[in-house]
C-alpha cells in the first residue's frame, strides 16, 4: 500500500525543501529586478546630478551634497549595495518633486490605493465567480451569453475609458456618486471610492469570469463529473466537485489578475484624481522623480512576488497530485 505514515512524513519533508527552493527563486528574481531598478538612475537620459537636483539651484555646494548623499564617488557596485541596504530598511531617499522622504510620501498614499484595490477585488470576486460558474453550467443560455459578452467587453475596455464613461454618466445624469478626489477620510472616502472601484472591478471581474468559466467548462466534461451524476449525486454537489477542481486553474491565473490590478489602479486613480500610489507614480514618472519611481517599482515587485508565492502555496494546497509529484522529485 502506498499510503504509509512514513511516506506521508517524507512527503512533508520534501514539501518543505520545495518551499525553500521557491522562496530562493523568488528572492533571486527580486535581486535581478533590484539591479535593473537601481540602474534606472544611471541610465535615465541627462546628467545624473542634474536629475537628482531637480529644480534646486546647481551651486557647487549642492552638487557636492548630492554626490555625497548618493555616494556617487564610490564604485558602482558599492553604490548599489548601499542603495539596496537602505532600501531594505525602508530608506529610499528624498523625493525631489515633493521635497519629502520617499517613505513618507508612499506611506501617506498607501491607504487609498489599498482600499481601492481591495474594494475592487472583492467586488469582482463576488460577482465574477458565481457568474462564471452559472455561465458554464448553463452553457448557451441567456446568462451565458450575457456573461460572455460582459467578459469580452470587460477585457477589452481600457480602465480609463470605462472610468471616463462612468464619470460622464454619474457626473451629469445620475449625480449620486462623487466623481473626483478622495473625500475627507472614513466613510466619505469609501463613498468616493465606489466609482473608481467599479471601474477597476470591471476589468478584474472579466478576467476572473473568463478563468472561472473556462475552468468550469473543462471540469464539467470530465469523467468524474459524469460518474458523480451517474451515481445519483445532486446537481449542486456535482457542481461543487467541479468547482473544487476548477479552483486549481483559477488560482493559477491569479498572477494575471494581479498584473491587471497594478496597471488598472494607476489608470483608475488618474481618471478619478485620487491621491494614491498610482497618481504618485504617474506624476513621478513625468517629473523624472527617480527615487520615488524606484521605490514604487520595487514595492510592486515585492508585493507581486509575495502574492505569487502565496498562489503557488495555495496551488499545492489545492492539488494533492502536485504534492505527490513535488515530493517525488
Amino acid at each position: 500500500m502506498t499510503i504509509t505514515p512514513i511516506a506521508r512524513a517524507s512527503q512533508a519533508r520534501s514539501l518543505g525543501r520545495m518551499l525553500v527552493v521557491r522562496v530562493l527563486g523568488t528572492i533571486g528574481i527580486l535581486l535581478v529586478l533590484s539591479i535593473i531598478v537601481f540602474s534606472m538612475l544611471h541610465l535615465a537620459p541627462g546628467d545624473i546630478v542634474k536629475n537628482l537636483l531637480g529644480n534646486r539651484a546647481s551651486s557647487p555646494e549642492a552638487i557636492a551634497a548630492i554626490r555625497a548623499q548618493y555616494n556617487l564617488d564610490q564604485p558602482l557596485y558599492m553604490q548599489y549595495l548601499i542603495w539596496l541596504g537602505n532600501a531594505l530598511t525602508g530608506d529610499f531617499g528624498q523625493s525631489i518633486r515633493l521635497q519629502d522622504s520617499v517613505s513618507n510620501v508612499i506611506g501617506s498614499r498607501l491607504g487609498i490605493t489599498a482600499a481601492l484595490s481591495g474594494l475592487a477585488f472583492l467586488l469582482a470576486l463576488v460577482v465574477a465567480v458565481p457568474l462564471g460558474v452559472q455561465s458554464a453550467v448553463r452553457s448557451g443560455s441567456w446568462i451565458d451569453r450575457f456573461a460572455t459578452g460582459f467578459g469580452i467587453v470587460g477585457l477589452s475596455a481600457p480602465t480609463f475609458a470605462v472610468g471616463l464613461l462612468l464619470l460622464y454618466v454619474f457626473a451629469f445624469y445620475v449625480p449620486i456618486f462623487p466623481v473626483y478626489g478622495a473625500g475627507d477620510g472614513g466613510l466619505d472616502t469609501l463613498w468616493h471610492l465606489v466609482l473608481p472601484a467599479i471601474t477597476l472591478a470591471l476589468g478584474l471581474g472579466a478576467i476572473i469570469l473568463k478563468l472561472t468559466r473556462t475552468a468550469m467548462l473543462r471540469e464539467l466534461e470530465t469523467d468524474y463529473v459524469t460518474f458523480g451524476r451517474a451515481r445519483g449525486l445532486p446537481d449542486r454537489q456535482v457542481h461543487l466537485i467541479a468547482l473544487r477542481n476548477a479552483a486549481i486553474p483559477i488560482v493559477t491565473g491569479a498572477s494575471l489578475v494581479l498584473t491587471f490590478l497594478v496597471g488598472g489602479t494607476v489608470l483608475a486613480e488618474t481618471t478619478f484624481a485620487l491621491p494614491g500610489l498610482g497618481t504618485l507614480l504617474q506624476g513621478s514618472v513625468l517629473f523624472k522623480d527617480i527615487a520615488v519611481v524606484q521605490a514604487l517599482t520595487l514595492l510592486v515587485a515585492v508585493t507581486i512576488a509575495i502574492i505569487a508565492l502565496l498562489a503557488d502555496l495555495a496551488y499545492i494546497f489545492l492539488d494533492p497530485r502536485i504534492r505527490a509529484k513535488e515530493s517525488a522529485q
Binding site: 460518474f227 458523480g228 451517474a230 451515481r231 445519483g232 492539488d319
Partner: peptide, 15 residues
C-alpha cells in the same frame, strides 16, 4: 448506477 471505463479519470483527483 453507471460505472465508467477509466478508473484514472472517473474519480475526482482532489477529493
Amino acid at each position: 448506477s453507471l460505472l465508467l471505463q477509466d478508473p484514472f479519470t472517473s474519480l475526482s483527483p482532489v477529493h
